[in-house]
Design a protein around this nucleic acid. Structure first.
Lengths: 179, 179
DNA sequence: GCGGGCATGTAAGCGGTTACATGATTGA
DNA sequence: TCAATCATGTAACCGCTTACATGCCCGC
């Protein structure tokens, strides 16, 4: 079985949620996946083309009233199979999370205590903003996808975001004091 | 002032810690920064060449007894300046941490509960291993860099890793139960 | 008529890894 | 002599973003 990258599987997965066009995929991504998997049109459209060529999806041109034409993509049995197979595989290894703040703090001796503290305060603010966003997305899923069988899983991923962000905020506070 | 990417600044920063060759940079990275900033030779050597051309570092060929020749890189005042300037800048935004496990869980409805649980158990194991590594690195810094003014900052970055990893492990446990 | 949302697409270029190539030196 | 460590380097290729280009349709 041919191997694809994770972004390709992400696209394949989103096509099972009711989003059927490149544009709709991007929309869902920006709403729900954006905190752990972001993607641009420059990646989406060529990937859809490739998936079509490899017969994991089929494409049909559809007309809509009041909107421009769009291409509707549907998974073939082969496509669903590829998705399920990928889902069942354990990840190879946890990837390295490149963190610019940690990188700067690593070289903290070249800065004043005050400058290091400012960097951490700034980071903390950004983390708190992000946490607010997570709460907002969770709320939006609970109200707009009440009966969607996906909702449960989407909330799990948000919970991950919340927990690790809270831990990072705690670290900021502790480090600001200790520095 | 010319802009460089973070990896270039990472290399510049490491050159201030006593590591002076491309090989030594890679070694320190693999020991200490590897959990939040990884890098390959294919990036290091061309970057050192570029930094030399731009006069942020100088290079001298040095002989060693019992070892092959190596190139020794030293920061120029211009280079130190560039590093300090970068250090003082707040980050633009927190980058998206791409997480393959979350991506798979997001599409969890296509799998059995048992399969989702297995994925999480596997992830938890990998996180626990990582946590052990963090403890080992912290111990190694405390013993081998006792009087190094960098040690404090290096331990801060490790603390970040520990805290967020523990939070992720907790999430795994909670999600395994809830699923 | 025009701005904004809907919709599809491509080309350039960056950052990065992998795999390969080369060679010195030492100790078993 | 051979494996291991030290040491430097490059070419091919991948994944991805950014910027740009095009065009439909609706309501103001």
């Amino acid at each position: 079985m041919k191997e694809y990258n994770n972004t390709t599987y992400a696209i394949l997965g989103i096509l099972t949620t009711g989003c059927k066009s490149g544009y709709a995929i991007k929309q869902l991504m920006d709403q729900s996946l954006t905190h752990f998997w972001k993607i641009s049109y420059g990646q989406i459209y060529p990937t859809l083309k490739q998936l079509t060529a490899n017969e994991l999806v089929t494409v049909t041109n559809t007309q809509q009233d009041g909107k421009p034409d769009r291409k509707e993509y549907d998974l073939t049995p082969k496509g669903l199979n590829a998705l399920k197979n990928w889902l069942s595989q354990p990840i190879e290894q946890i990837p390295v999370e490149r963190n610019e703040v940690l990188l700067k703090l690593f070289f903290g001796k070249h800065q004043s205590t005050e400058q290091n503290r400012m960097q951490l305060e700034d980071y903390k603010r950004k983390l708190e903003e992000r946490l607010q966003t997570y709460h907002a997305i969770a709320h939006s899923i609970q109200t707009h996808h009440e009966n969607d069988p996906n909702a449960q899983y989407w909330l799990f991923t948000l919970d991950y975001g919340k927990r690790t962000t809270v831990a990072a905020i705690d670290w900021c506070e502790a480090t600001i004091k200790a520095i």
